[in-house]
């Protein structure tokens, strides 16, 4: 119930501040430009259309956009003193953190839904494999949730939004390029460990190519649960300091 109250207020604040619209505009602009180029190439040359193209683009874009979405979530509450009122209300720490997380994930889901427009364009010209499209979108949706949970955690650590954004961007970038690093390392066992720890490694060779593996779903869900847990504990720790 409290989670829902926090969630509703938070979603409301996304849609009443210009900031969220700027983020959405930037996000969609990037996706649009890259889609148009890919589409043009596919039309003039004889490469095939990849329905996972936009999700793959988003997996990289979100390294930079997820921190922008999440940096204010808890850091701002602390700086503005709002956390003091929240923590003195009967709401629990977990409902505060969960409300915030789901609101950011909800906002991301809307952004993602808007990019389905490109899939509609594809359907008009060269119908893609629906199963492949669906899996790529399911994958990037979970992937985004994990990224947002990581960003939320860094937002819980500091009062400074810039610091929160910077730390989560670095972390997400490492978790993104871990996939590529895993592919160039000679020792296969080390490479395998690094890849399976990276976020991208659970997307690029499964969801992105239209494969559903339980381990990837569990990995993303696990990251979300772990990060939420750590964020809740961090918020709770304000009481013991």
């Amino acid at each position: 119930m409290d989670t829902l109250t926090i969630f509703r207020r938070e979603v409301g604040s996304y849609f009443t501040s210009p900031f969220a619209y700027f983020i959405a505009a930037g996000f969609l602009l990037f996706c649009g430009i890259l889609f148009a180029r890919d589409f043009q190439e596919a039309a003039t040359q004889t490469t095939t259309i990849n329905p996972a193209f936009i999700p793959a683009v988003i997996s990289f874009l979100m390294v930079f956009f997820a921190p922008l979405l999440t940096m204010r979530l808890l850091a701002e509450e602390k700086r503005e003193g709002m956390m003091e009122l929240l923590l003195t209300s009967p709401a629990s720490e977990s409902s505060i953190v969960m409300g915030k997380f789901f609101s950011a994930w909800f906002y991301y889901t809307i952004l993602l839904a808007l990019t389905l427009l490109y899939q509609l364009v594809l359907f008009a010209y060269a119908p893609p494999d629906i199963g492949h499209t669906f899996l790529a979108y399911l994958g990037i949706w979970l992937y985004g949730g994990a990224m947002i949970a990581i960003g939320l955690f860094f937002s819980s650590l500091t009062e400074n939004q810039i610091v929160a954004a910077f730390l989560s961007m670095i972390t997400l970038l490492i978790l993104y390029i871990g996939d590529a690093a895993g592919q160039v390392i000679g020792n296969i066992d080390i490479a395998r460990v690094i890849r399976s720890l990276s976020l991208q490694g659970h997307f690029s060779t499964s969801f992105q190519v239209g494969i559903l593996r339980a381990e990837d779903v569990v990995f993303f869900a696990g990251i979300i649960v772990l990060m939420l847990y750590l964020s809740i504990r961090t918020v709770e720790s304000h009481r013991w300091r």
Binding site: S13, T16, E80, E84
Partner: peptide, 12 residues
């Protein structure tokens, strides 16, 4: 509770 500095959500 009214804290010393009234915290607000400016966009509400």
């Amino acid at each position: 509770y009214l804290p010393e500095r009234v915290p607000i959500y400016p966009d509400m």
